[in-house]
Structure formats: C-alpha cells, structure tokens
Design a protein around this nucleic acid. Structure first.
Length: 319
RNA sequence: AGGGGUAUAGUUCAGCUGGUAGAAUAACGGUCUCCAAAACCGCAGGUCGUGGGUUCAAAUCCUACUGCCCCUG
C-alpha cells in the first residue's frame, strides 16, 4: 500500500506558524489539523493565540474549539481524533496539514505510536500519586527500580510523573515501559511526510514572545481569564495550566502582583519555546526552515513547496 | 557644597573579627512514547568600581578618585 501524504508545520511559539499555514493550505489544497494542546479548548482564544474564523480564510480546521475547558485532553485522544480527521481528509482527496507546537502530539501521529493498554483505570495512578505525597519521590523510584530496573535507570528519581507512568504501564500491560519505548522508537512513519520546523534567531524570537504577551494583555487576556474563573474553571484543570492562564489565575488569587505575573508568563513562554526547539532538534527527518534566511514570507512558502515537490507530496507545474 | 551610605556573576544579593568568592534568578544545554503550554535534569558565568597604601596575605583594613543613593543646605 502506498503511503499517504502528510505535511507537518511546526516551530516554537510565536514564530509565525499560523499565518504561514493558511498560505500553505491554499497552495497545496490542504486542510489543517491543529497539533496544539491548548487551542482545542473553547473560550481560550487570546492566551492561546488561536486562529480566528476570518484568518482561516475558508480552510477547514480541526481540533480547535472542540472541548470544554474542564474536559481532559492528552496525546491518546489527540492521536485518535487526528487519525479520524485525517481519514476524512484523505477521503476528500485533500492533504492533511498538522500545524501546531506540541511536538509530542506530532510524534504520536507521525509514527503512529502505540498507546493501547489504556483501560481508563485511573485508580492505580491516583494511588501512586498519593504515595509520592506521603513517602516522597525517592521511595516510589525505588519501587520501580525493583520491578523494572532498566526504566528506573533512565528516569530521574525526581521525575515522579514518569515513574508513575512506568509503574502504571507495568501493572496494566505486564511489560516494561523501557522495552515498549524502545520498540516504538524503531518505527517508521506510515506516511509520506514532510516535517517543517519554522525557526528564527533566538534573540528575535524572545523579543517577539515578550511583545506578544503585552499584546495579549492589551487584547483583554485578563478578562478572558476572569471569565473562565467566573465559569468555575479552576487551576487543577489541564486547560488552566496553559501559559497565560495559570499565571493570571495566580495573580487573581492574590499570589503576586500583575507585573510579576506578566514577568513570570513571559519567562515561562521563553522557556517553553526553548523546550520546543530541543524537542525538534531530536526528531529525525525534520526540515528546518530558518525564517531569517528568506527575505519574505512568499519565499519561505516557495522553499516549503519545493521540498514538498522533492518528497513527491505535491507535483508542481513548472511555470 | 557638607555629612552619611553604597559599589561583588547579565540581574538581585551573601561573604562574621583579613587567607585570591557563594546563592537565587536569568542565560545556555538536555530528557521526554497517556497531564507535554506539563514534569524533570545538567552546565557555565566574577581582573570583587579605579589607583595607591598597610600586610607574608585584602572583596574584607586605610586613602584618593569616580558612579549611584539618602540627609542637610
């Protein structure tokens, strides 16, 4: 069976993925699936820099505004939903374009990572979470060290989140997560893909991040957060842990001044961008698109199209 | 102008009575296979404002200068 085409457009926050994605979708007659863990949520528009209806310019978008802020969202759901939408898109003879900055989500779809064994049984997980609270992270890690020494060695003792997952995996599947991960790592992508990572000079990126946060506040981010709080959404929700939301909720809770909250938000966003870049550096087969090397957006698009042509995802008509 | 204070890592500060400097934070780097805008880890920064002096030895004492802060006029 021939591999189906898939285009990925990603990069750190604020590089300008959204604007480019529309031009790209129009050029290749594609439809966009958002690979963003926060834009799925309704009522969270300003803080997530969500694309507006007008900006979409008629291009169909999926996984934007699909969930209420108190719903859970995670890689598994993302993977299921995007596969579902991709099939629809293929059925229409269009090309799916994954656009967004959540590298983990992209990886899950691109390599069709196996997450089965889920059970939706969260009782063991909560039991372990309780245990860390009581006995500390080292204790939990030592339990893992006995049951699955290989995994214990690769997971730092302080990283309880991962230790818990490893133990949970062990209990639910009977296997070692270290082996599972190794298997998944060997996988080839089932798609004929092009993985574009948009990037630009670090100092300039940080500068636009800082400015964008200021703009978000001018646009009424604080009101957005107040409205969410008024609807009863609290900080323990996954959605409210998004950048811009957790900081302003803390401010509204009187934990620090607005000025401090904004500084923390800017810093957090810069750190996030850095982590995103670290992720993409590690991914194989990515095509880095350094915006600084192109005088205009049109030429960035031109470069991307030429790559898509090289990878036989599109066939350009010369002239 | 006079009096007092201060000057140490990019930043905020520690460094007791002299033995060539530490922390937080930023920066930089990394991990990641069901909370990923999350969680976690690592590393590197200082001619101690400048010039003299005392001393075996000064960030630490003395002195002059320079910058900043406060008070008085």
């Amino acid at each position: 069976m021939e591999k189906k085409p898939l285009i990925i457009l990603t990069g750190p926050t604020s590089v300008g993925k959204t604007a480019l994605s529309i031009a790209l979708a129009k050029a290749v007659d594609g439809e966009i699936i958002s690979a963003d863990s926060m834009q799925v949520y309704k009522y969270m528009d300003i803080g997530t820099a969500k694309i507006s209806q007008e900006q979409m310019g008629g291009i169909p978008h999926y996984l934007i505004d699909e969930l209420e802020p108190d719903e859970d969202f995670n890689v598994v759901r993302f993977q299921q939903l995007s596969k579902h939408y991709m099939n629809q898109i293929y059925a229409r003879n269009k090309i799916p374009i994954l656009v967004g900055g959540t590298g983990f989500y992209i990886q899950a779809v691109l390599y069709d990572i196996d997450f089965t064994e889920n059970e939706t049984d969260t009782s063991y997980r909560s039991f372990l979470e309780q245990l860390v609270q009581e006995k500390g992270p080292l204790h939990l890690h030592s339990i893992l060290a006995k049951a699955d020494p290989e995994s214990a060695e690769t997971i730092h003792p302080n990283n309880s989140k991962r230790v818990i997952r490893a133990l949970e995996y062990l209990k639910l599947s009977g296997g070692k997560i270290s082996e599972h991960n190794e298997e998944q790592r060997q996988k080839d992508s089932p798609y004929q893909f092009c993985y574009f990572v948009l990037n630009k000079d670090r100092a300039m990126l940080y500068d636009t991040i800082n400015k964008r946060v200021d703009i978000m506040l001018q646009d009424g981010l604080l009101n957005e957060v107040k409205n969410l709080a008024a609807r009863g959404y609290t900080r323990d929700l996954v959605s409210m842990q998004g950048l811009g939301y957790k900081e302003l909720l803390a401010y509204l809770n009187g934990e620090y001044t607005l000025e401090k909250a904004i500084d923390i938000l800017k810093r957090g966003t810069r750190h996030f961008a850095k982590r995103q870049l670290t992720w993409f550096k590690r991914e194989k087969d990515v095509i880095w698109v350094d915006k600084d090397q192109f005088p205009t957006e049109t030429e960035v698009l031109g470069y991307i199209l030429s790559k898509l042509d090289e990878h036989s995802i599109i066939h350009r008509n010369i002239e």
